[in-house]
């Protein structure tokens, strides 16, 4: 198992380097001028100097290697220094800076990460908590009324886009009923009970919208996995030897049925982060998604490149976690 993990981790490195190169080239080869958004009154020679200042005169491979150095060496070293207080090498090493704000990209991301994590993380956990009981119950009474309703809701859940459910909720609960705030206030600080209640109130809608969407997907997997397991021989054996029905379903079947679902849940994490881009836009949560959108709109290439690559890291990482979890949970699978 340890060898397998190590091998997969080592194998992930070239994959990630390749992905980072693909993203870099994709952004770099686009027929777009990073100074195009600047005012038209800037004379051509100044514009040329700005381009020089951004390092755009270098050939693509040099700029890619420079980005790699900044991202893979300089920034991790910086984080390491901040955490331990030690200084390693030259303290003024070149940092990955955003073109539009001129602050280091990593700082910008660290600033936005908590908002996204709160909303996305909470909604994912909530979604899982809703999905698993629904999946179990629909599978237990397959084609019963609960299953029919559950199937319908799940179908609606992944057919209706989150930007429509979000806007609809805003129309109903903020505009018509005036119960919940429509805009997420990220500067809000929790100081007491009333501000805590406000925080809960402003999180209800974004969390619910995402949770509904996640629950729809996961409950389908849960149901399918339960249905598969309920007809297995070991279930009949358990019933035959007199195990109570509750114990058969909740212990024997559920534990086995959860194995594939757990890996699906792990693999879904990056997608949820991606989906949060839209939800953040609906509720004006200034998290990572919003950072990405504003970066794209202002053609802030270092920021966009880094964020997109981080999304790719998430995908590769959680795919790896899913594979490892599968091996850990299912004793039939042994990685040599």
């Amino acid at each position: 198992m340890f060898n397998y993990t190590l091998r997969r981790l080592i194998f992930a490195v070239p994959v990630l380097v390749l992905i980072s190169f693909v993203i870099f080239v994709l952004i770099d080869f686009a027929p777009n001028d990073p100074t195009g958004n600047l005012p038209l009154t800037i004379p051509a020679e100044v514009r040329e100097k700005i381009r020089l200042g951004l390092g755009l005169d270098e050939p693509t491979h040099i700029r890619y290697l420079l980005w790699c150095k900044q991202f893979f060496i300089n920034e991790p070293l910086n984080v390491f220094e901040q955490l331990t207080g030690w200084s390693v090498g030259d303290p003024d090493r070149l940092r990955l800076r955003s073109w539009s704000t001129h602050s280091p990209v990593v700082d910008l991301i660290a600033e936005r990460l908590p908002q996204t994590l709160w909303v996305v993380g909470l909604s994912y956990i909530l979604g899982i908590c809703i999905a698993i009981p629904i999946g179990v119950m629909s599978a237990y009474r397959q084609f019963g009324w609960f299953d029919q309703i559950g199937t319908f809701i799940a179908m609606v859940g992944f057919s209706v886009p989150t930007f429509f459910t979000g806007v609809l909720m805003v129309v109903v609960f903020s505009v018509q009923l005036d119960w919940l705030p429509s805009i997420y206030d990220t500067t809000h600080e929790i100081t007491g009970w009333s501000s805590f209640a406000f925080q809960i109130k402003q999180m209800i809608m974004p969390v619910c919208v995402l949770a509904l969407y996640n629950a729809a997907q996961i409950s389908r997997y849960m149901r399918a996995s339960m249905v598969d397991n309920l007809s297995q021989d070991y279930v009949r054996t358990a019933r035959a030897k007199g195990v109570g029905e509750r114990r058969v379903v909740m212990v024997h079947v559920l534990r086995n049925a959860l194995i594939p679902v757990v890996t699906v849940i792990a693999m879904g994490v990056p997608q949820v982060f991606g989906g949060a881009i839209i939800t953040e836009q609906v509720f004006r949560v200034n998290g990572l998604g919003q950072l990405l959108i504003s970066g794209i709109q202002s053609a802030d290439i270092p920021l966009v490149q880094t964020l997109t690559f981080l999304f790719a890291v998430l995908i590769v990482l959680f795919n790896l976690i899913a594979d490892l979890l599968y091996g850990l949970l299912d004793p039939r699978i042994r990685y040599a």
Partner: peptide, 20 residues
């Protein structure tokens, strides 16, 4: 490789850069 690319961010970037 394509499955490991973050699609929504890349879609946005590509459209932004190629649109004009």
């Amino acid at each position: 490789l394509f499955l490991a690319l973050p699609m929504l961010p890349l879609l946005l970037v590509v459209i932004m850069l190629w649109r004009d």
